[in-house]
Each structure stands twice: as C-alpha cells, then as structure tokens.
C-alpha cells in the first residue's frame, strides 16, 4: 500500500510540476527597446498584394491600390517590397496614390504574368533587376537617412508550386546578395516556404527538404527578422519574410492583419530593425 501511495504522490507531483512550468513558459518579447538606445533604424514592409487562388485573376487588382497606399502611408516604412503586381502600370498608379513620397521600380517581366516591385522613400535610390532562377527580382539601393549607410532591399517572389524551383530561386538571390558583400542587403518577399515539419502531410515529396535547405542557405547569411510576427497568409501560413543581415537587431515585427482588402490572401509584414 505504501508503494502505491508513493506512486500516486509522484504522479500528482509531476502533474503539479507540469502545470507550474506550463504557466511559466517564456515568450520572446518583441519590440523590446535596445538598452543602448543608439543606432540607425530601418522600417521595411513586404506585401504580396495578389489575390487568393480561387479568383480568376490572382494578380493585384488596381482597384485595391488605394487601400494598399493607405496602409503604406499609415505605417510609414522606409522601403516596401511588393509582389504580384501586373506590371509598371499598376506601380505608377500606386506611386500616384502615395503622393510622390516614394519612388519605385518593378522587376523585368520574364516568363510570368506578375512582377515584384520595390518602393523607397529615398530620392537618391538606384534600382536594378536581380536575375534569379530564370526570372527576375528587383532591388533598390538607398540611404534611409542622409547620414545612414547605404542599404539594399531585394523584393522577391519564389514559385508557389514547386519547392525545387523555390530553392533554385532562393539560392540565386542569396548568391546575388553575397556578391554585394560590401553593402547591407535585406531580402524581403513571398518565398512560399513550407517549413513547419509538424504540418507536413506530403509524405512522398521532397518539398520539406528543398524548402528547409533553401531556408537554411538564406539563414547562413541573413536573420529571419519577422520570425516572431506569426502567420502572414491565410490558412495559418507564414510564407512572407524579411531577411536582414546578421548584425541587424529586430525592434518590431508585426503582421498587419487588417490591411488586406478584396480577396487578398497575404497580409503585409512590417519589420523595424536597428542597424
């Protein structure tokens, strides 16, 4: 009887301990102020403004661009990476709504019907196409402030359907960034990575392997600055990223859940980093 009572007591003690430690589980505190208080700050936004798959045309709708501009103006990022614009015409409309506060460029169209764009506040920005996996991303080189060092933001959009292509595309972007090692390069966009192995139900594909290796390759040179912000797309998916140089510290990472309009399936991710 004594042994059984001991077992019962141990079982109860374990349950109490489990409860105790569960309540005390730690969470990463986001937006904690930098104790040093110093350093330049850079606020970046990435947003795939296209529509969900159930629409006829899943590219951005021009009628939504007013709302996109409002969200941008409200959050006042230094630079924005947009995806799934139909082309330069839509970019012009958007820049018009932004009242001349931003300059931007769309990527060169290749074999796809949608393009990435990058917008920056800085008037002295330079734009260039980034060849990646048979298509193009687009990059802006700019100074967030006059006294700040020059930074580069790449707006990227990896293939939604094939993990192998995503890996090839990602590898090209990273290699391009490494070639610009003298500059502070940020990469932002929709990478469509499926990284959560717990949700893996495609038992017979290499998707998880491709995505995790591509992601690993990115993280050799970058930090996933928006990691703690949570899901960025419908169906609880975190597929939009802002990759920052390892030295940059995340001050804020937030997904703007109320920003999407129409049938948009992504939410904008805003990341503020200290340089």
């Amino acid at each position: 009887m004594r042994a059984k009572l001991t077992l019962a007591a141990l079982c109860a003690a374990m349950l109490v301990a489990a409860h105790h430690f569960d309540a005390a589980r730690e969470r990463t505190v986001l937006g904690a102020r930098d104790a040093t208080g110093g350093g330049a700050r850079l606020r970046l936004m990435t947003w795939n403004v296209g529509y969900a798959e159930l629409e006829d045309d899943t590219r951005a709708h021009t009628s939504d661009l007013r709302a996109v501009a409002d969200a941008i103006l409200k959050n006042d990022p230094d630079a924005i990476a947009l995806q799934e614009l139909t082309g330069s015409d839509q970019l012009k409309v958007l820049l018009g709504y932004l009242g001349g506060r931003y300059r931007g460029a769309a990527a060169r169209a290749a074999h796809t019907d949608r393009v990435e764009a990058v917008l920056v506040k800085s008037s002295g920005a330079r734009f260039e196409d980034v060849p990646a996996g048979g298509r193009y991303a687009v990059a802006a080189t700019f100074r967030p402030r006059a006294d700040a060092p020059e930074v580069v933001l790449v707006s990227a959009h990896a293939d939604a359907f094939r993990a192998a292509r995503r890996r090839e595309y990602t590898e090209s972007i990273v290699d391009w960034a490494r070639a610009h090692s003298g500059q502070t390069v940020f990469v932002a966009g929709d990478f469509n990575f499926e990284l959560d192995a717990r949700d893996e139900s495609h038992l017979y594909t290499d998707d998880l392997k491709h995505d995790s290796e591509a992601y690993s390759y990115l993280l050799r040179y970058f930090r996933d600055a928006g990691r703690e912000a949570g899901d960025t797309a419908i169906n609880d998916r975190r597929i939009d990223y802002v990759f920052a140089p390892p030295a940059a510290t995340t001050r804020r990472a937030e997904v703007l859940k109320d920003a999407p309009v129409g049938r948009m399936d992504h939410m904008p991710l805003v990341v503020e980093v200290g340089l």
């Binding site: 059984k4 079982c11 374990m14 349950l15 301990a17 430690f21 730690e26």
Partner: peptide
C-alpha cells in the same frame, strides 16, 4: 521551462501507468 513542463508530463504518464499496473 518547456523542458521541465514536458518532462513532468512524461513523469505523470509514467507514474500513473505504474500505479495502475501496481
């Protein structure tokens, strides 16, 4: 914290099953 939490849960399963077995 998380490790202690799940280790305690495992302990509860273990001792609970042992108690039933005993």
């Amino acid at each position: 914290q998380s490790l202690y939490h799940y280790a305690s849960l495992c302990g509860a399963y273990t001792f609970g099953a042992l108690l039933a077995a005993a």
